[in-house]
Simulated assay, not measured.
Amino acid sequence: MFFDSLVRPALYRLHGDDAERVHERALQALSVLGSAPQTVRQALRRVNAADDAVTVFGVRFPGRVGLAAGMDKDGRALRAWPALGFGFVEVGTVTRHAQPGNPRPRLFALPASDAVINRMGFNNGGADALAARLGRDGRPDVPLGVSIGKSKVTPIDDAVADYRTSLQALHPFADYVAINVSSPNTPGLRALQDRDSLAEILAALRDTAPRTPLLVKVAPDLTDDALGELLQVCTDHGVAGIIATNTTLRRDGLASADTPVAAEQGGLSGRPLTRRALDVVRFVHTQTSGELPIIGVGGIGGPADAEAMLDAGAALVQVYTAFALHGPALVRRINRTLAAERARWPSAY
C-alpha cells in the first residue's frame, strides 16, 4: 500500500528510529487536516465512512470502528478523525494533573512483528486543559469518548478523588468516559482492578456523573478468575460497558528480528495481542451473557480481525497500532467489510 511503501519509510528516514517523533509529525498533519474547510472534510468522510450505524449503551454510533485512546491524547486533531472514516473517537488517557510522562525514548516500533511497545506514562496536558480545548473548539461530529487515569503524583490511596476530579471536568463533553485502571506504565495502577479498589472508584464516579456511560478498560494479563471478579464489580455498579483490552506485558508472538527491542519495558500492542484480546472479549461476552456491551481493541490489523471481534461478542471495535503503522486506508477497508456484513451483528444494546 502507498502508506506502507512510501509514507512510513519517508517519516522514519526523517526521524530515524524515533517512533514518538513520527507520531508527533503525523498528529501535526492531522491537525492541519482538521482545520481544512468543512467541505473538504465532508468529502473525505463520504469516501471513508461506512453505512453501519449502531446504538450502544444509549449512544448512536455512525460506524463501529473507533480510534483507541493514546493516539490523540489531548484532542488536538478531533475534526480530522471523522474525515478518515472513524465512527467514534476516544481521547486520552488524561489525568487530573498535567504530566510529562516517562523519559524518552518510550515508544518503539517492531515492524517485523507488526507491533509497538510503549511506556508513555500518561503524558498529557491534564483534564482541565482538555476540557478548555473542548469548550473552545467543540466536539467532533461523531461520538467522543474520554479516557481518564490516575496521575502519577497521586498516591494510590487518593486515586478516587483524582479520578473524580477528572470526571467532573470532562463528563459534560463526553458521550462516554473510559476508566483506565489497566495501563502497565503507571506504578500501582493495575492494583485498582482489584475488587475493593474498583468498587470504591466506580461508586464515586457513578455519583459524580450519573447520566454519563462509564466503561472500564481491562488488562489482557488478568486471569479468568480475576477478570470474573472485575466483571461482577462492574455489573454491581452499573458500568455501561467494557473495553477489552489494554496493552500486555507479555512478549509472546514476536518475530526474531524484533528481539533486541522486545527487551524494552512497557506495554505491547499490535499483532501479538490479537489472540489474547479476542479471548478476553469472548470471555467477557460469555460471562455477562451478552448483556454488557464490549468495545474490542487489541491486534486489529484488518477486516478479518474486526469481524472476529464482533463475532466474539464486541459491539464496537477500536484500532490504534495498525492504523499508526499502516495508515488511514485500514479504516476504510474495515468499514467497507463491516458494512457489507452488518446483518451478522446486533444493531442495538
Rank of each mutant, 00 (worst) to 15 (best):
F2H: 05
D4L: 08
S5W: 10
D17C: 02
D18M: 05
E20Y: 03
E20F: 12
A26L: 11
A29N: 12
V32R: 12
L33G: 04
V54A: 01
V56C: 05
V65T: 15
V65Q: 01
G66Y: 05
A68C: 15
G75I: 11
G75Y: 00
F86L: 07
V89W: 05
P100A: 05
L107E: 09
P111L: 13
G121F: 09
F122V: 13
L130C: 00
A131C: 03
R133P: 08
R133E: 06
R133H: 06
P140N: 13
D141P: 03
P143A: 10
L144T: 05
G145Q: 04
T154I: 13
D157R: 14
D158G: 09
A161Q: 12
Y163S: 04
R164C: 12
S166Y: 10
A169S: 14
P172D: 14
D175A: 10
V177K: 07
N180A: 04
V181C: 08
S183K: 00
L189C: 04
A199C: 03
A199V: 04
L202I: 07
L202H: 00
A203M: 15
A209G: 03
R211G: 14
T212N: 08
V218L: 14
A219E: 00
D221M: 10
L227V: 09
L230C: 09
Q232P: 00
V233P: 08
T235Y: 04
D236R: 11
H237S: 10
V239W: 02
A240T: 13
T247S: 14
R250Y: 03
G253A: 09
A255G: 02
A263T: 15
L268P: 14
T274I: 00
R275H: 12
R276P: 11
A277P: 09
A277L: 11
L278D: 05
R282C: 02
F283L: 11
T288H: 10
G290V: 14
P293N: 09
I294M: 10
I294F: 02
I295T: 01
G299M: 02
I300D: 07
E307W: 00
A308Y: 04
M309D: 03
L310C: 08
G313I: 09
L316A: 04
V317G: 10
T321R: 01
A322R: 04
F323D: 00
A324K: 01
A324Q: 05
L325M: 13
I334V: 13
R336K: 15
R336N: 00
E341Q: 12
R342E: 02
R344P: 00
Y349A: 15
